[in-house]
Design a protein around this nucleic acid. Structure first.
Length: 530
RNA sequence: GCCUUCUUAGCUCAGACGGUUAGAGCGACGGACUGUUAAUCCGCAGGUCCUAGGUUCGAUUCCUAGAGAGGGCGCCA
C-alpha cells in the first residue's frame, strides 16, 4: 500500500500538520503483521515504567496497545510518550507484532512518536465507574469510550443492513416530511413550531406512515427512515423524545405477507450484526442466545391466545407465564441471599489487620460491585410481584402493558408476533376482519428478554366508506384527511406496512439497559445538551 | 401524570440517635519502577455535606417546600 506523509511545523502544541494521502487504521493491522506502519489516534489509556511506556491507542476503527521502549524508540520518543495525557492526539510509527495476550491479537512496537496535541489533564471521564447523569452531561466525550464505541458500531451496522435489505428487494426509500400541518393520529402530544405566518403551527412528525401509504401507491414498495418526535414526558429506559423509525409500506400486501416481511427483515438485520460485529458484542458482553436462536421461526399467536398465556391459563411448550415469573422472583431472592453472604465475607476480610494496599483495593472493589448488584436485584424483587399481579389481573380487551409483554416474551427465545387485536384499542386506519368486526388486522412483534414491542404493523383499511366511519368515531378532523382519502378514491388496493423503532432494535441487540445509550445525542425530557 | 429511592471532594461512595478539626477509593499533582492490562508502590492537595425556610443553645444530620437524578407504572416505537 502506498501512502505519503508530509509534516509541516504549525504550533508548539500541535507539533505537526499532517497532509496525508492514505492512512493505516487499527482494524487493518493483521494485514501488516511484521511490517512498519504509522497510526493516528488518541490515547485511550497509558501505563508507564521507568524505561517503557504502554499507550493504548484508539483511532475510531479499534484499539491497540503501543509499546514505547527506550531500546527501540530512544530516550526522546520515550520522554514524549511519558508526557502524554489521556486523550492526547498522536501519530505513532512502529512494527506490527502478533501477541495473543492483547485484545485484537496485535500490538505496535513503536519507533517514533509524534504529538498533535497534549490534552488537558482534567479529562472528566476516568477509568472507574460513573453515574449515568454525569456521563450524559459529558456525552460528547463519553462517545469515545469503548462501550459507547461498540454500541455505535452496531448501530451503524444495523443501519446499513436495513437499507441493504430493502434496496435488495426493490423497495424505494421515500422520505416523509418532518414538518406536518396536523397531528395525524391524534393521540400523542407533539412538538410544535411556528411556520412562517404567526398563526400557523407546524408539528414535528410523529409518524411517516400516512405519507408512506401515499408513496406506496406511486412506487409499489417503499420505506421511510427518518426522525420521529414525541413530546411525551416518558422518562423510562425505553423512550426518547427524538428517535429514528423505519416504516415500510407495500401495495398488494395483506397481514400475512406483512408478518412474513417483518420476520425476514428482523432476522436479516440481527444476523448481519451477529456476523459483522462479534468484537463489539464481546466488548458489550452480550449474551448471544438471541443471535443463535434467530434462525428459528417466530411464533405467531392471536391476541386472545396471548391473553390466556398472560393470565397463566394457557401453557407454551409446557411453560406457564405466571409460574415462570414466580420462579424468576424466587431466583432473584436466592441471588440476593448469595450476594449478601459474599458481601459479609468480603467486609469481614477487610477488617483483618496487616492487609496490603492491593488486597484492600481488591476487597473494596468486590464490596462496591456487590452493593451495586444488590441494589438492582432489590429493585427486581420489588417489581416482579407487581408484574405478576398485573399480569394475572389482566382484563381481556385492554392493551398490553409492559408487565404483560414481559410475561409473554419470557417464554420464548425468539421474537413473538401477536396479531388479531380488538378494534377499540387500535388505530383508525387498521383494516377489520371481514368475518368479525371486533378485531383488526394489526400485529405487534415483541422482543424476548423483556424488551417488549419493537414493531407495530397492520393491513390498512382500503374501503373509503369504512375509513370515513372510523374517522368520525375517532373524532378526527375530516378536512385534514382529504388527501389521505384520495388514496382510496383513486385506485385503492389492499396494502400493509409496519413501523420499527430503530433505537429499540439497537437496544435489544446490544443488550444495553437504557435506550439513551443507543443514539449519539439522545433527546428526552430534561435533556437538550450537549 | 402517579408510586418509590436518592442528592456529602473532580468521579464513585461511606458516615454521624443533632455536638470539637467530615472520611475512603479512584482521578489530578510530585516521585520510584523494563511487560503493564481499571498496572503497582511512596508522598501531597482537594468540601457551600443540592437550595430555601423552620425546630433547636447548636442542623450537613430532624421537619416542610422546591430543584435535580435513579428505578417502576402509564403513554408508546
Amino acid at each position: 500500500m502506498q501512502f505519503a506523509l508530509f509534516f509541516v511545523p504549525l504550533h508548539p502544541n500541535s507539533r505537526k500538520q499532517l497532509i496525508c494521502m492514505e492512512l493505516t487504521y487499527i482494524k487493518d493491522l493483521p494485514k501488516h503483521e511484521g511490517g512498519k506502519v504509522t497510526l493516528h489516534g488518541w490515547i485511550a489509556n497509558k501505563r508507564s515504567s521507568g524505561k517503557v511506556a504502554f499507550l493504548v491507542l484508539r483511532d475510531g476503527s479499534g484499539f491497540v496497545q503501543c509499546v514505547v521502549e527506550v531500546t527501540t524508540a530512544g530516550e526522546e520518543n520515550l520522554e514524549r510518550a511519558k508526557r502524554l495525557t489521556l486523550e492526547s492526539a498522536i501519530s505513532i510509527t512502529g512494527t506490527v507484532r502478533k501477541d495473543d495476550n492483547q485484545e485484537g491479537g496485535y500490538e505496535l512496537q513503536a519507533t517514533d512518536v509524534h504529538i498533535y496535541s497534549i490534552a488537558d489533564e482534567n479529562y472528566p471521564i476516568g477509568k472507574k465507574e460513573h453515574g449515568v447523569d454525569f456521563l450524559m452531561n459529558n456525552r460528547h466525550l463519553w462517545l469515545r469510550s469503548k462501550r459507547q464505541w461498540a454500541i455505535m458500531k452496531i448501530r451503524n451496522c444495523a443501519l446499513y443492513a436495513i437499507h441493504r435489505f430493502f434496496q435488495e428487494r426493490d423497495f424505494v426509500q421515500m422520505d416523509s416530511p418532518i414538518l406536518t400541518g396536523n397531528a395525524c393520529e391524534g393521540t400523542t402530544t407533539l412538538f410544535d413550531t411556528q411556520f412562517y405566518k404567526e398563526d400557523q403551527v407546524a408539528y414535528l412528525s410523529q409518524s411517516g406512515q400516512l405519507y408512506a401509504e401515499a408513496t406506496a401507491m406511486a412506487m409499489g414498495k417503499v420505506y421511510t427512515f427518518g426522525p420521529t418526535f414525541r413530546a411525551e414526558k416518558s422518562l423510562t429506559p425505553r423512550h426518547l423524545s427524538e428517535f429514528w423509525m423505519i416504516e415500510p409500506e407495500m401495495a398488494f400486501y395483506d397481514l400475512e405477507m406483512d408478518m412474513n416481511l417483518i420476520e425476514d427483515f428482523v432476522r436479516y438485520v440481527v444476523s448481519e450484526v451477529y456476523e459483522k460485529c462479534r468484537t463489539e458484542l464481546e466488548t458489550l458482553e452480550r449474551n448471544l442466545t438471541l443471535f443463535e436462536a434467530i434462525k428459528q421461526p417466530f411464533p405467531r399467536i392471536t391476541y386472545d391466545d396471548a391473553v390466556l398465556i398472560i393470565k397463566g391459563k394457557k401453557e407454551v411448550n409446557g411453560k406457564n407465564a405466571i409460574v415462570q415469573l414466580e420462579a424468576d422472583l424466587a431466583a432473584v431472592h436466592a441471588t440476593i441471599a448469595e450476594k449478601n453472604a459474599a458481601l459479609a465475607e468480603y467486609e469481614e476480610k477487610l477488617q483483618a489487620k496487616g492487609l496490603k494496599k492491593g488486597e484492600i483495593n481488591h476487597f473494596q472493589n468486590k464490596v462496591d460491585t456487590l452493593k451495586n448488584e444488590l441494589k438492582k436485584l432489590e429493585d427486581d424483587a420489588r417489581n416482579i410481584p407487581q408484574w405478576i399481579a398485573s399480569a394475572s389481573n389482566f382484563v381481556p380487551g385492554d392493551d398490553f402493558g409492559a408487565s404483560d409483554e414481559k410475561a409473554i416474551t419470557r417464554l420464548f427465545d425468539v421474537p413473538v408476533f401477536v396479531y388479531k387485536w380488538p378494534s377499540p384499542i387500535k388505530a383508525f386506519y387498521m383494516k377489520r376482519y371481514e368475518d368479525d368486526d371486533n378485531y383488526v388486522k394489526g400485529v405487534d412483534l415483541l422482543a424476548p428478554e423483556g424488551f417488549g414491542e419493537i414493531v407495530g404493523g397492520s393491513q390498512r383499511e382500503d374501503d373509503i366508506e369504512k375509513l370515513l366511519e372510523r374517522i368520525k368515531e375517532h373524532d378526527l378532523p375530516l378536512e385534514a384527511f382529504e388527501w389521505y382519502l384520495d388514496l382510496r378514491r383513486f385506485g385503492s388496493v389492499p396494502h400493509a406496512g409496519f413501523g420499527l423503532g430503530f433505537e429499540r432494535l439497537v437496544m435489544w441487540m446490544t443488550g444495553v439497559s437504557h435506550i439513551r445509550e443507543t443514539i449519539p445525542f439522545p433527546r428526552y425530557y430534561g435533556r437538550l445538551f450537549p
